[in-house]
């Protein structure tokens, strides 16, 4: 089994179709929807955690790709400019899932993208403005 976090980008003309239903019924994706943002006439976005076999994951991703839906891994959703980061730790205070933590030995910022729910709190908590959210 496979636990993967993905963001799906729906073009405006596809936001009304029930792709999630197909993914559950036809591809056996066990889906936990973390965040969704779809407004009529605009691109829709859906952040989900998927639990399924590697094979079914691949098939489902092919189905989405053939349908014109772009899929990105979560790692690409939070961008931290590590060259500019001073490891102050302010972002870790708002990251309750623990995607951003301080290494207790080096006191450097540690980023665990697999725990991220793209809530966006870190972006506004960063005092030097070097965290950008792509969701």
């Amino acid at each position: 089994m496979n636990n993967t976090r993905l963001t799906l980008y729906f073009p405006p003309d596809l936001t009304c179709k029930a792709f999630t239903y197909d993914l559950v019924k036809e591809y056996d994706w066990k889906i936990n929807i973390i965040k969704a943002s779809i407004s009529e006439g605009q691109e829709g976005r859906l952040l989900m955690e998927v639990d399924t076999s590697s094979e079914k994951l691949k098939e489902g991703l092919e189905y989405l790709s053939n349908s014109g839906i772009e899929v990105k891994n979560l790692e690409k959703q939070v961008y931290i400019d590590r060259d500019e980061c001073i490891s102050c730790g302010a972002c870790t205070g708002v990251c309750l899932p623990g995607a951003l933590e301080m290494d207790k030995n080096t006191w450097e910022l540690v980023h665990n993208p697999e725990k991220c729910i793209v809530c966006g709190l870190c972006e506004s908590a960063c005092p030097i403005g070097i965290i950008k959210i792509g969701f």
Binding site: I86, S87, C88, T92, G93, V94, W107, P127
Partner: peptide
């Protein structure tokens, strides 16, 4: 309760 620093220990070191 989760704690977080605001001053950088890394830079202080």
């Amino acid at each position: 309760i989760r704690t977080a620093p605001l001053s950088s220990m890394k830079k202080a070191r």
